[in-house]
Design a protein around this nucleic acid. Structure first.
Lengths: 172, 172
DNA sequence: CTGAACTATTTTATACTTAAAATAATTTCC
DNA sequence: GGAAATTATTTTAAGTATAAAATAGTTCAG
């Protein structure tokens, strides 16, 4: 098993916040805790059930959603990782025969990545279980609470995108 | 600058979800998007302003919150990363003189890590700006929305901890 | 046309991360 | 008190991640 504990009485980052910490900071730490917990569970489950990793699954999922394929840059944007990262990840999946690359006819710099039949099959096998894991983890929330949370996170996302990076150029 | 785009009209993972995807899945992807966006901003800002990284800052922050110091395992639990990860991270910070290790008197396996004066100074210099970045990113939410979000995330956290790993042992 | 600016991707160097095995110390229980 | 189980940490090997520089192709102003 993993050497990372997952005990329900977690003594995590967020639990360790001070009573007098600012709401914004506590909110961020709790958000991070939730995200990390779910991510860790999915990662562990993907390895245990399918012998694969989250980044690989994520890349396959992006391609599955885009039947016409995606370029490296598009993948980089959607997965929110650096461009260089995609290169290595794609290389491994191509090596494993799950993804293929088709050079673009009109722009010789770029190529479209897409799922091979084998990749599509692998993804279709994984995705129902993946969804079930997520459902299970969220079982403690009512439909209404999920919708409320979804809405609030939407506002947060907008806020972050709007106000991000405003600390830059304060001396220009 | 970074080569990862941060344009407000993000074409991210979550934006690419289907209309007919389940609420649970969309909620998870939006949560991940928010978390990744904030994390990336903090990471970029830490590098730009202080030439350091998020894991280093995070470790310093944990130690700052625990005046008596923490063992490797405690740090691992709080930061929600693997035990082996802490070893390397701590080594680097000790090398840089920001952290010191004190062997435990009663248990020769473990040692307490704590901030050096230099580490404390470095952290105290960073933390007000760090808090300001978080505040700025959340500026689009009202006090009440933050509290609501905080509460809902608390429920989610409980749910995940309760229902995590229930896919394991389904054939035992 | 031509070269400057831009865009897409890869490469490089370094850091971070994990899972699993190894090492070493402590506790437990007979 | 000593073997077995547990706990704390380190090591190992592979993969994931970033930022920045390099490479190569495209676009566009003049």
């Amino acid at each position: 098993m993993s050497e990372v504990r997952q005990n329900p009485a977690a003594n995590d980052r967020e639990t360790a916040t001070h009573r007098d910490d600012k709401l914004e900071l506590r909110l961020w730490l709790r958000l991070l805790t939730c995200s990390s917990l779910i991510e860790r569970n999915v990662r562990t489950a993907l390895r245990a059930r399918f012998g694969t990793t989250l980044p690989r699954f994520d890349l396959l999922a992006q391609l599955d959603r885009a039947p016409d394929g995606l370029t490296m840059s598009e993948l980089s944007a959607r997965m929110m990782v650096s461009n260089g990262n995609i290169t290595g990840l794609a290389d491994r999946l191509i090596e494993e025969g799950l993804v293929k690359r088709t050079p673009s006819a009109r722009d010789r710099r770029s190529a479209h990545l897409s799922l091979t039949p084998s990749g599509k099959r692998a993804f279709d096998e994984m995705t129902p279980e993946h969804e079930a894991w997520i459902d299970t983890m969220m079982a403690g929330l009512s439909r209404q609470e999920m919708q409320q949370l979804f809405g609030l996170l939407g506002k947060l996302k907008t806020s972050v995108l709007q106000n991000a990076g405003s600390h830059e150029g304060e001396d220009s």
